[in-house]
Design a binder for these strands. Structure first.
Length: 247
DNA sequence: GCGACAG
DNA sequence: ATCTTGTCGC
């Protein structure tokens, strides 16, 4: 048995990618009703779960994404892919998807296998316009997606009880837009929301199953480590993959 | 108008 | 996200 290969690719930002905040918000308003909310989603502990994450070198305008596929039952790594490109949008709260999606899409496509449930680092429905990164990625790919964030963003939440597995609503006014999930006893919860084609209960169950030893899901931890590696490599050896990172 | 604000 | 040393703990 040899080391698992990592597929590496580069990104080209679409010609019609939004340039201004107004354009980006318009895209969100146009795509938001394509989110599917009436499917339960894949059962936890079966099939595949894929973590995606992105790392940046804003000085050089370089971005790297990683997609790591896990066996949902064992959490063993099944496949990995990375993509490197140029930053496509500045960080603007509420518009994170426009900064992360081109590179994440390239990494997912490079996988050449069904990713199963995609776990994003950020939010889905818990978003000012109910269309965060996870929902956006779901609509673009048709894949079931969820968002697991490390911070409550602008939302209010009730502190979950101390035991692992405790949950409490994440609130936008009176609406439960997500859930605070305690993945480790006595440790700050993570904030789970529905992306696309998955129920909130299923999203929370997957999150708990993916975090048996750490606060953050194993999928996200693996993707985080891999995209950082890819970014280092890309900055150290520009053009090693293809000229100008594809752009 | 001012501050807060996923990554 | 990223900048950053040492340090306590499994």
């Amino acid at each position: 048995m040899r080391t698992l290969d990592t597929i590496m690719t580069t990104v080209r930002i679409p010609e019609d990618w939004p340039t201004t905040e107004a354009e980006a918000r318009a895209v969100q308003d146009e795509l938001r009703d394509r989110v599917v909310l009436d499917e339960p989603g894949p059962p936890p502990g079966t099939g595949r779960v894929t973590g995606v994450d992105v790392a940046y070198d804003d000085e050089r305008g370089v971005v790297a994404a990683a997609a790591v596929v896990l066996d949902a039952a064992t959490l063993a790594v099944v496949a990995r892919a990375t993509a490197v490109g140029r930053v496509s949008f500045p960080y603007v709260p509420g518009l994170l998807a426009f900064r992360e999606i081109p590179t994440v899409l390239a990494a997912l496509e490079a996988l050449h296998l069904d990713p199963g449930l995609v776990v994003c680092d950020g939010y889905g429905l818990a978003h000012p316009r109910r269309f965060g990164l996870a929902s956006h990625l779901g609509v673009l790919t048709g894949l079931p997606t969820i968002g697991v964030a490390k911070n409550p963003f602008t939302f209010a939440y009730v502190e979950p009880a101390a035991p692992r597995g405790s949950t409490a609503p994440l609130l936008a006014g009176a609406d439960e837009v997500g859930r605070a999930v305690r993945t480790q006893a006595g440790v700050k919860p993570v904030f789970v929301s529905v992306g696309h084609r998955v129920s909130l209960d299923t999203a929370c169950a997957h999150t708990l199953a993916l975090a048996p030893k750490h606060r953050v899901p194993e999928s996200t931890r693996r993707a985080d480590a891999l995209c950082r590696e890819a970014l280092k490599e890309a900055v150290a050896r520009p053009g090693a993959r293809s000229p100008e990172y594809g752009n």
